[in-house]
Simulated assay, not measured.
Amino acid sequence: MCPGNHESAGKRRFGGRCHDNQHLQPVLVEAAWSAVRHPGYLRSLYHRHVMKNGGYRSPVAKKKAIVTVAHAMIVIIWHVLATGKPYHELGEDYFTTRKDPEKEAQRLIAKLQVLGHKVTVELAPA
């Protein structure tokens, strides 16, 4: 379930995924389909990759995203088995809250200033 790696002269190209275990792969994909139907980190990972690969109208995007989720699940399983610690759910809002809000605001302000806009920032009332 690992992604393929095709790199030459510093350029990364699509390499396809490895076709290793024929018995484990369908089980992981079925488990991934089940996991994306419940709120949590894996569902948000699925949504993020579907949108990255072409949106919900594209069957190819959904399949690529499911393989990504299955890969994430096998990584989680490996870490649980290797460390002996229980799985800690990162939460559905992991991708939106993982960045420092102050740094993200500064990045967006700088981007607007490069585009020629004058930016003044006020805190929203609580």
Rank of each mutant, 00 (worst) to 15 (best):
N21H: 08
N21G: 03
Q22A: 14
H23W: 15
Q25M: 08
Q25H: 11
P26K: 12
P26H: 13
V27K: 14
L28S: 02
E30C: 08
E30Q: 13
W33L: 10
S34R: 12
A35W: 03
V36L: 01
H38I: 10
P39F: 10
P39C: 05
G40E: 01
Y41M: 05
Y41H: 15
L42P: 04
R43C: 13
S44G: 03
S44Q: 15
S44E: 15
S44C: 08
L45H: 07
R48F: 10
R48G: 05
R48P: 04
H49I: 04
V50S: 04
M51L: 12
M51T: 04
M51A: 00
M51V: 02
K52H: 13
G54W: 04
G54R: 02
Y56E: 03
R57A: 11
V60W: 07
K62T: 00
K62Y: 04
K64R: 14
I66T: 13
V67W: 01
A70S: 06
H71G: 01
A72S: 13
V75M: 11
W78P: 00
L81N: 08
A82E: 13
T83F: 12
P86W: 10
P86D: 12
H88I: 14
G91T: 01
F95G: 01
F95M: 04
F95Q: 06
T96E: 12
T96Y: 11
R98L: 09
K99S: 12
K99Q: 14
P101I: 05
A105D: 06
A105L: 15
Q106S: 09
I109A: 05
I109D: 05
A110W: 10
K111G: 07
K111W: 10
L112S: 06
L112E: 11
Q113F: 04
